[in-house]
Amino acid sequence: MNYIDPHIHMVSRTTDDYETLAKMGCVAMSEPAFWAGFDRGSAESFRDYFNQLTDVEPKRAAQYGIQHFAWLCINAKEAENVELSREVLKLIPEFLDRPNVLGIGEIGLNKNTRNEAIIFQEHMELAVAHDQSVLIHTPHLADKYQGTRMILDMLADHSIDRHRILVDHVEEHTIGAVLDAGYWAGMTLYPVTKCTPSRAVDMIEKFGAERLCVNSAGDWGPSKPTAVPDLILEMRRRGHSEALIQKVVHDNPKEYFSQSKNFSLDR
């Protein structure tokens, strides 16, 4: 089955991973800007990173017939440095017209601090000013519930169309509030700290498939870039229809991405 991975960090993955993903049916992916595993020292490092996301990775993906899209921001962890964040925010508009850019992301909170909240708000203002969709990271583990509620509080203040916002990494205790508020939700299949394929299918069965996407968030940490096919298999084993599976892993991300002017799907 053809599928789209709406959240994967291919700058951290090998070319062999592109080949494997293509063989498993991945036809498109989107890569949000994130933490590199270390704090970068200057805004110019982000300029290079944004070039990597908007020029290098699309070419690597294209070698295997995969369309690569990207989201730009300074991530929540480095947003603790407000001065650096504001320099990076100034850079972003010059990249928004690159042909694979879908919007602003993954912005969000990490430890739910005041500085993170300030930079989140400034990213939202940038998104509204430039008519961009937004992909939002919610915090890990013990911080997730509190951080998700704080993010929903901040989003409620903005006039942006809620269907243009995807709140990612939802789990059992946060998915309901996100969907009820009218946003898209993303479930991340990630060992130990996020969600397993079984629990993700449980949530699909409980909440339905509307405005719900699933991703691997494959990155430089312990993660599995082929996690979306794992979910496809689990849905099949439970007897779900091919149409429902396709909606979750292909049609839903396509519908969400289609609100971005740079998105079109070749196949």
Binding site: N112, L141, A142, D143, K144, Y145, Q146, R149, M150, D153, E171, E172, H173, R199, D202
Partner: peptide
């Protein structure tokens, strides 16, 4: 599953802003 998630979660303060 929700109860367990909440057990391991920090509390949310509606007055955080």
């Amino acid at each position: 599953a929700e109860k367990m998630q909440m057990l391991f979660s920090r509390q949310y303060d509606p007055e955080w802003i």
